[in-house]
Design a protein around this nucleic acid. Sequence first.
DNA 1: GAATCCTATTGAAACGTTTCTATAAATGAA
DNA 2: TTCATTTATAGAAACGTTTCAATAGGATTC
Lengths: 334, 334
Amino acid sequence: MATIKDVAKVAGVAISTASYALNNSTKISQATKKKVEEAAKSLNYQKNGFASDLKRTKTNTIALVLSDLSGPFYSELIQGVQDITSANGYDLIACSSIGGPQSTAVRFLKEKRVDGAIILAHNISDEITLESARKDFPLVVLDRTLENEFVYHVEADNVQGAYTATEHLIQHGHEDIAYVSGPAISHDSIRRFQGYQDALKAHGIPYQSKWKFSGDFTKKGGYRATKLMIAQRDLPEGIFYANDEMAIGGLQAFQENGIDVPGDISIIGYDDIELAEYVNPPLTTIKQPKYDTGALSVHLIFQLLAGEKVNHHYKLPTELVTRQSVKLKTKVSE
Amino acid sequence: MATIKDVAKVAGVAISTASYALNNSTKISQATKKKVEEAAKSLNYQKNGFASDLKRTKTNTIALVLSDLSGPFYSELIQGVQDITSANGYDLIACSSIGGPQSTAVRFLKEKRVDGAIILAHNISDEITLESARKDFPLVVLDRTLENEFVYHVEADNVQGAYTATEHLIQHGHEDIAYVSGPAISHDSIRRFQGYQDALKAHGIPYQSKWKFSGDFTKKGGYRATKLMIAQRDLPEGIFYANDEMAIGGLQAFQENGIDVPGDISIIGYDDIELAEYVNPPLTTIKQPKYDTGALSVHLIFQLLAGEKVNHHYKLPTELVTRQSVKLKTKVSE
DNA sequence: GAATCCTATTGAAACGTTTCTATAAATGAA
DNA sequence: TTCATTTATAGAAACGTTTCAATAGGATTC
């Protein structure tokens, strides 16, 4: 590989001149600039990114840390991140945190191979996040809250979203409303449970622990929780699943047992994944402002890199998407 | 940030000693090794990745170049890539080629910020690929063929897959079979068209150009092509859509026009995306060995990095997934 | 024509590692 | 005791850039 030394030699100038010429410095005459560029072209010269980064102590790259590169993909969120990143002339790379402390993601964070990072990876421990965060290396976390001077937090408002979902069921005449949770440690699930409880309370419906079921954010988990409910022969009037995947699993369980949704029971999900529109019946759910979440996250990083001060916490509003899995309950008896 | 210099100073040793100690050289006594490690810990030392890469001229990282980080995601393919990469102790990063020559992907390729790359991005020009490929920098392309000493090619067998799909329709009694293509320049689409034609020929069915429709691999494109077919009031007996997305768009068009699939017309897709199973009717389609494609790609890269010789072209077999969008045609009249 | 100011160019240091080579100390053989 | 050998450590060069400070020469001013 040709280096800048070779280019300088061929062009007959000093190394520094070559560097200036290739970096469009104004101090270089047009003639020498041309000479250098031609030399570079003839040698098929490409700068060595590492050497350059090393000297500049700046990479012009933002990392998006995902728990698993192979999905589930938050494509709108990434779109938001991507758009803003490239609008600012930065590069974006995605890396996975599979493998824990040995993972690519952790290496990139610790070795500061990027200028800033957005973390959406439950398997990156808080400890590692805190160790990596430092001055001039802003970190935005999306799936947890963390108190640290250099860690920032953006989230869709889980409490409000869950409140809306639950209230929607209540407004459709349902009182016995179950909640199918995500993993116990999930920040999102905990918040959504909070919103669920808040809504019940606000409408004078006492919370009953028998209506809380444990899921794990997977289709199978939703299926199992629902089977359990059915087996207990004591169905609620409505179910709020902490995410769409589980709701779809639940749908399958109901189908298998000849229980009609929404005829016999109303259900509502959370996330508005692509599939939600296609299942039968189409799933009513809560849509999160994913694009905005992504866009805001990078935006904050750029503000911070520019030395501005920003808040440590941001909450974005969610939105109810009405489809056909919730039905108005006409109180026949009672 | 603490550097190795600081560590050496605190530990009271030379820089080189510190370096050896941190890199587990055998020549260092246990005592000093411990001393250095403690110093590193106390300073929260993290090595500078660039400096290290610069000296080593090796990054231990493989890049996966995607046309758009926000999907459509070939999650199984990525899984394959990921598994093999980490099994070899390498890091994997994904980067996008949005923005053409200014994109992150192109920079990473040209500036050789990785040891090898897998390219699955139609918007990376052949020219750039060829410019980037060089000795000790193996490139695997998945969505085109390219003749170059340092470029390798892995693909699911498009011709065979399309042949199988078309033959499946033929074997179900269909003769008038339409093909809805992807973008004209798409390598995949062209190959699939070839397979379609081959199957017709093999079964003595003449190819009619009126049965070729232009799509673009999107849902909307499939919808439009299908609408056009319906408007012409001359429907084929079966349609082979060059991918599932378009088939699903087509399904919607048929639904809107009260045409029953597969009662009135059989359709088949290509890809076996997740949605295919959920649409109504579930879509018969061709499944590609995505995981294997990904795994083989990285495997080749490692072989090449190790100095081994491998073939330049690999073709992996596809598989028919039978669902309910194709029906046996009982020839009532004629 | 001397003094001043630009402008284009150069030389050299620096970024933080790794690694080759040299050296000093410790060990062993004679 | 001396010399050779091993071992642990140190010194310094190198990787390929960028950029500060220095310089030379030409243009401008009076």
